[in-house]
Computed example of a mutant assay.
Amino acid sequence: MTRIPMAPLVLGLAGLIPFVWGAATYINAPLANWGAGALGSRFVGPYVQLFYGSVILSFMSGVLWGFATRASGSQAATGYALSVIPALWAFFMTGGGPTTAAMNLIFGFLGLLVLDFAFSQWGLTPRWWMSLRMLLTTVVVACLAVTVI
């Protein structure tokens, strides 16, 4: 594993805040009440996690698309095709209530990690990419699991 540069690490960790906040407000009623009053009910518990998780899966589709531009021929075509999967997954699989949506987001983020690995193996990502993605995915899945359990 390669050392993650400071900017992507700090920004990646900052991107975890809505997931951690959602898990914290899901298990702590006084915090959830405060958050709902101060920020609105959409920004606490599973609601913030599910909406933000859908946004991040869509964002990651764009990141993978960018990596695919570094390929050529059939590998590029495969990369482009695979890159749209996380956004489509988020679009089609996050309905059905908070538990089902959180479970489907967990599967989406784990599937994204598989795609990250493939793009990394193809040499399309920075060397540190998998170190960052493993860290972030672990936290995201753990936070979403709070909603599922």
Score class of each variant (00 low, 15 high):
32 A>I: 01
32 A>S: 14
33 N>T: 13
34 W>K: 08
38 A>S: 14
40 G>N: 02
44 V>H: 05
46 P>W: 14
47 Y>V: 04
47 Y>S: 08
48 V>N: 11
49 Q>R: 10
49 Q>H: 07
50 L>H: 12
56 I>Y: 01
56 I>V: 10
57 L>D: 02
58 S>E: 09
58 S>L: 06
62 G>H: 15
64 L>I: 07
66 G>L: 09
66 G>T: 06
67 F>Y: 12
67 F>K: 06
68 A>C: 09
68 A>H: 08
68 A>R: 10
69 T>R: 15
70 R>M: 11
70 R>C: 05
71 A>W: 07
71 A>E: 07
72 S>N: 03
73 G>F: 07
73 G>N: 03
74 S>P: 07
75 Q>R: 15
75 Q>M: 13
76 A>Y: 05
76 A>Q: 13
77 A>C: 06
78 T>G: 03
80 Y>D: 03
81 A>S: 15
81 A>G: 15
82 L>V: 11
82 L>A: 15
83 S>D: 00
85 I>T: 02
86 P>I: 02
86 P>L: 01
87 A>S: 11
87 A>C: 08
90 A>N: 04
91 F>G: 12
91 F>Y: 13
91 F>I: 03
92 F>A: 10
93 M>D: 07
93 M>T: 09
94 T>H: 10
95 G>M: 05
96 G>D: 02
96 G>E: 05
97 G>W: 09
97 G>I: 10
99 T>G: 07
101 A>C: 11
102 A>R: 06
103 M>Q: 09
103 M>A: 11
103 M>T: 12
104 N>M: 13
105 L>H: 01
106 I>L: 01
109 F>Y: 14
109 F>E: 00
109 F>R: 04
111 G>P: 00
111 G>E: 08
112 L>H: 07
113 L>Y: 11
115 L>S: 12
115 L>P: 08
116 D>F: 01
116 D>E: 03
117 F>Q: 14
117 F>Y: 13
118 A>Y: 02
119 F>I: 02
119 F>N: 00
120 S>K: 00
124 L>K: 13
125 T>N: 10
126 P>Q: 10
130 M>K: 08
130 M>V: 00
131 S>I: 06
132 L>Q: 14
132 L>W: 04
133 R>P: 05
134 M>E: 00
136 L>C: 09
